[in-house]
Design a protein around this nucleic acid. Structure first.
Length: 458
RNA sequence: GGUCCCAUCGUCUAGUGGCCUAGGACGCUGGCCUCUCACGCCGGAAACACGGGUUCGAAACCCGUUGGGACCA
């Protein structure tokens, strides 16, 4: 395939979400797989609802995921193009002006509903043109009788009866153009070879084919990809959790995980689960996309994120925390990050487990308080004495000190370890206790155990 | 309501007529490891929606039914 050009065409009327991102990703993959171009087209013709902040959200989201575009166009800057093509259609006699008023159309619709007929315009202004007066819309003549067959790369052949379709309005009475019209004009003008979009546009595609034909243009390849549903099987929305992609960024997910996860909803390759962007470019194919819709599986996203997190080195993690969570944690030993990494699925989780080291003060969580019972105060004080009596501070020395104390008091290691864990981290779970306090340091460890013994006496 | 799409474990998928006693992954679960929690390792439960065909043989092909979804209204 040569000169492949794909596009992602969001309207900036809200934050970019998961479903949109996947559409963008698929378009990007196909373009790059065949060494073509991927365009980003902002469909901002609805001036009322389009907002600059949403444009920024879309651009930032895609950049974050490394879905890079070769060209960026705004529909609002292309109205000459739409006007010119309307002239062409007018000269060809493919469109006509319709002066029918709202009241008439509503009455017509009501009548058709009562008679259970398909609801569509009756072509009055085409068949019996009235004298030109008042405001009017442009409609596309739909005189096609043969079936419309969409040759879809995902669904196979999909057939529509053109009788189902109205004479499509392409310009409204206020002079603005309709969605299906501008999409087709842009796709033609930008030489889009592959239109890859959600199945929710399948009906639109049929209507748009009529426009391609009226303009005498050949059709691009179509691929209608299945939608992503929430866990209840309904269309993904705010109810199902994070609505915008950038919320995943601030929650500490990695772009690699999101890309991998989104590619795998509706697509698979052998037994494989882990795909980098490069591997996706190798292996992804439109015709291997599953035609049935997929459900957003948050647990699997978490697992993937944990996987990619484990591949990052400590320095990368520190800078990712700063970049994505917006917090600077200063110098944290690499060894500590390595200990916490396998215990974290997201950057946020990892950061939370770092706080006992980063902060001077800790608070002991409720569920950890029972780890410091009064009868453990004396052993804890003995442990402190052991620490103070010893000039060294390393894992071997720490193990010996713990051993001495538990032998003296006939304790199990778990009792003392949990006491110290709660005292030092404020939590009932953490990495290995010797590793933790070795990294935390002698002074801070002793101070925290001391304050826990005070707490235990209250 | 009309039109269209879809259908393999709870979820994402492998499967392109015999390699299927249906494979992998997440999740769930039993065990090992162990100072806690993870990680890791070893096991387990769990699916071809239903009914008809076609075929020597159907998860796979065809037709219905049922269920889910999208769009339009």
């Amino acid at each position: 395939m040569n000169n492949v050009i794909t596009r992602f065409a969001p309207s900036p009327t809200g934050n970019l979400h998961i479903g949109g991102v996947r559409t963008a990703l698929y378009n990007y993959l196909i373009a790059k797989k065949y060494h073509g171009k991927f365009l980003l087209r902002i469909e901002d013709t609805d001036r009322e609802r389009s907002k600059e902040e949403y444009v920024q959200d879309i651009l930032q989201s895609l950049q974050w995921l490394n879905i890079t575009w070769d060209q960026l166009v705004f529909q609002s800057q292309r109205s000459d193009l739409y006007i010119n093509h309307l002239k062409i259609l007018e000269e060809k006699g493919s469109v006509y002006k319709c002066f029918c008023e709202k009241d008439r159309l509503e009455a017509l619709r009501k009548d058709q509903m009562e008679k259970k007929l398909p609801i569509k315009y009756d072509k009055k202004c085409l068949l019996n043109p009235a004298p030109n007066h008042g405001s009017f819309v442009y409609r596309l003549k739909n005189e096609r009788h043969e079936k419309i067959i969409i040759k879809d790369n995902v669904l196979g052949e999909v057939t529509f009866d053109p009788k189902e379709f109205d004479d499509l309005i392409i310009r409204r009475s206020d002079g603005t153009f309709t969605y299906n019209y501008v999409v087709v004009i842009d796709d033609i003008d930008l030489k889009i070879t592959h239109v890859i979009r959600g199945v929710d546009h399948l009906n639109n595609t049929a209507k748009q084919i009529l426009l391609y034909e009226a303009l005498g243009k050949s059709l691009p390849e179509f691929a209608h990809i299945p939608l992503i549903m929430g866990s209840d099987g309904k269309r993904l929305s705010k109810r199902h959790g994070a609505a915008s992609l950038l919320e995943y960024k601030t929650a500490g997910f990695l772009p690699e995980a999101l890309n991998n996860f989104l590619a795998r909803i509706g697509w698979g390759y052998k037994d494989e689960e882990i795909f980098t962007l490069d591997e996706l470019l190798q292996k992804f194919e439109l015709n291997s996309i599953n035609p049935s819709h997929g459900i957003f599986n948050y647990e699997k996203l978490l697992w993937l994120n944990g996987h990619y997190l484990s591949k990052k080195n400590p320095a990368e993690i520190i800078s990712l925390i700063k970049e994505q969570l917006g917090v600077a944690i200063g110098d944290v030993p690499a060894s500590l990050i390595e200990l916490i990494k396998p215990r974290s699925k997201t950057l946020q989780e990892l950061y939370d487990q770092l706080l006992f080291y980063v902060n001077d003060e800790i608070t002991i969580q409720d569920d950890a308080k029972k780890m410091i019972p009064p009868e453990m105060i004396k052993p804890a004080q003995d442990l402190i004495e052991e620490f103070k009596a010893n000039s060294e501070w390393n894992k071997q020395m720490l193990e010996q000190s713990f051993q001495k104390v538990i032998t003296k008091h006939s304790l199990k290691l778990v009792q003392l370890a949990q006491f110290v864990r709660a005292a030092v981290t404020g939590k009932k779970a953490s990495p290995g206790i010797f590793e933790i306090i070795e990294i935390l340091g002698k002074d801070r460890t002793i101070r925290r155990i001391e304050s826990a013994t005070h707490f235990g006496m209250e």
